[in-house]
Design a protein around this nucleic acid. Structure first.
Lengths: 158, 158
DNA sequence: TTCCTTGCAAACGATTTGCATTGGA
DNA sequence: TCCAATGCAAATCGTTTGCAAGGAA
C-alpha cells in the first residue's frame, strides 16, 4: 500500500464522516504509515521532528481513533501505542520483546488465522462474551536481544 | 486452592528469595486471591477498605511482581491491573468487555490450549522471537452489557 | 462570518519517590 | 540491633483540557 493510497483512502473515510483531513492529521497518518509497529505519542512526536506540539498530536490521534483510522494499544506498560487501523494495514498480531520493549507486527496465513479464530470463539463463549476483536499478544525476546544476551552484553531495560 | 495454601506457597517462594512476607503483602495476596479477575490498584485499595495507603499498596505490588508472585496487565487503558501469577492460579486468558471494562479469566481445555500454543510458536518464529509467555486477549461485550443494550439501557462507558 | 483546529500553559489521574518513622528477624 | 517496610506528602509522567488565536469553507 503506497502512501498516496493510504492518504486517499483516509481522505474519503474522513470525508464520509465530515471530519477534516488537516495538515496535522495527514502528518500523523504519514508518520504511522512509515512506522513498522505501534508507536507511542512520543515516538511519533520525535519522528515528526517535534514540528507539532504533543498536545496537538494527541488531539489528532483522538480524532483519528474515533474515526476508526488509527487503533490504540495499551499492552505495553503505561504508554499507549498507536497504529493505522486494520482496514488499512490488514489483520495482524503483535510480538513484544520483554527485553528492549520493541513491538512487531505479524500476520498469519489463512489456515493458521482461521484456526486461531476458532479458538477465540471458544474462549469468548466460555465467558459468555460476544467477540468483537481479538489480538494475540506474545511476549518473548527478539533476535537482537537474544544475541546480545548470549554475547554477554547488557540488556537494555525499557 | 485455599487461601491457606496460597499463603503458604507464597511464603516459601518469598523466603527462598529473602523477601519478607509482611502484613501488607499478605493482605495484597489475600485480596488478589479473593478477586475473580485482574484488579486495579484502586480496586484493591477499596477492597482492603483503604486500611493501607495507596502508595504502600503500590510498593507491595512492585515487590510481589518482581518476585514473580503477581502479574501486571496493562491491556485496559491507563490503569494497570494485577493478579496472582499463573503458577498460583493456573494458565489462563482474558476477555475484556469494551462496554463496562470488566475483565474475566478463562482457561482452556488441554486440546484447545495446545492448539493455541502451536499457533503461538508459529507467530513468534515468523517474527524471529523466542516465546516466553503468551496471552490471548479478546475484546468483546459481556452478557450483562449485551442484555442492557438490547433492553435500551444506557451503556456505561469506562 | 462561523465553526473547527491549533498552540500554549495549566490541570489531571495513575504511579513513584524522598524522608522520617516503625516494625520484624 | 539494624536493615527493610511503611506512611505521608510531594514529585513525576503520560495524557487531557481551557482558552484565546488561526484557518478553512
Amino acid at each position: 500500500m503506497t502512501a498516496q493510497n493510504i492518504d486517499e483512502m483516509v481522505r474519503r473515510h474522513l470525508a464520509d464522516r465530515d471530519i477534516r483531513f488537516t495538515q496535522g492529521r495527514k502528518a500523523v497518518v504519514r508518520a504511522l504509515h512509515l512506522s513498522s509497529g505501534p508507536q507511542s505519542a512520543a515516538d511519533l512526536h520525535a519522528r515528526m521532528k517535534a514540528q507539532v506540539p504533543l498536545s496537538s498530536l494527541y488531539r489528532s490521534l483522538v480524532v483519528l481513533e474515533g474515526a476508526g483510522v488509527v487503533a490504540a494499544h495499551h499492552s505495553q506498560g503505561p504508554v499507549a501505542r498507536f497504529e493505522l487501523a486494520e482496514w488499512l494495514t490488514g489483520h495482524h498480531h503483535h510480538v513484544l520483546c520483554m527485553s528492549c520493549g520493541r513491538v512487531d507486527d505479524v500476520s498469519l496465513d489463512r489456515t493458521t488465522e482461521s484456526a486461531l479464530a476458532g479458538i477465540v470463539v471458544i474462549v469468548a463463549s466460555k465467558a459468555g462474551f460476544s467477540v468483537s476483536e481479538h489480538s494475540l499478544e506474545i511476549e518473548g525476546t527478539c533476535s537482537v536481544c537474544r544475541s546480545e544476551n548470549s554475547a554477554g552484553t547488557v540488556t537494555q531495560a525499557f
